[in-house]
Simulated assay, not measured.
Amino acid sequence: MAGIGMREYRDIIGGGFLLVLGSSAAIHAVTSLRLGTVWQMGPGMFPAAVGVVIALLGTVILIGGLRSSGPRIEVDHRSMLFISLSVIAFAALIRPFGFVPAIVAVVAISSRSDARLSLAGIVLLAGSLSMIGFLIFQVGLNIPLSAFNWPR
């Protein structure tokens, strides 16, 4: 439901994010890479151009959000807390214990953000993601990540 005087905050936030992201990419490309000319492009020309396009699109979305009305944004603090904790747990556990225990921790912690997933679903999801991660990273890409690495 759009209220009188309400702004379209999703477009404002999304457009602002794209504006900052595109501007940052363009500035980085211009300041640290050689641009070259239009006829002989350097390695910085394409990233700078893409950054400018993303920044322009973000500006259009931002202005559109400021000019239109939209629903009020509701923030679920419980979900934000558990998702953030799961990311922190993954970062803390992947080196000392390996990626399988880290994935299990991510699934277990993030599943508490919404109580609709049963214990069997959590176990099935954790097992599936661990197997997919193993197949992609160790078998497919041959990345030297240890699946299990128990500290001594």
Rank of each mutant, 00 (worst) to 15 (best):
V75D: 03
H77P: 06
H77F: 08
R78A: 08
S79H: 05
M80G: 13
L81S: 09
F82E: 05
F82C: 12
I83F: 14
S84G: 12
S84T: 13
S84W: 01
L85G: 05
L85A: 15
L85H: 04
V87N: 09
I88G: 05
I88M: 13
A91N: 06
L93T: 02
I94F: 02
P96Y: 04
P96V: 12
P96K: 13
P96D: 08
F97C: 01
F97K: 04
F97A: 11
G98L: 04
G98T: 02
F99S: 07
V100Q: 04
A102N: 09
V104D: 10
A105N: 03
V106T: 14
V106A: 07
A108G: 01
A108E: 08
A108K: 03
S110E: 11
S110G: 12
R112P: 03
S113D: 06
S113M: 13
R116N: 13
R116C: 06
L117I: 15
L117P: 15
S118F: 11
L119C: 08
L119W: 07
A120H: 07
A120C: 02
A120D: 08
G121H: 13
G121D: 10
V123G: 07
V123I: 15
L124W: 07
L125G: 12
L125T: 13
A126E: 10
A126M: 09
A126L: 11
A126R: 12
G127I: 10
S128L: 15
S128R: 03
L129D: 06
L129Y: 13
S130F: 04
S130H: 07
M131Q: 04
G133L: 04
F134I: 10
L135T: 00
I136T: 10
I136K: 01
F137H: 03
I143E: 09
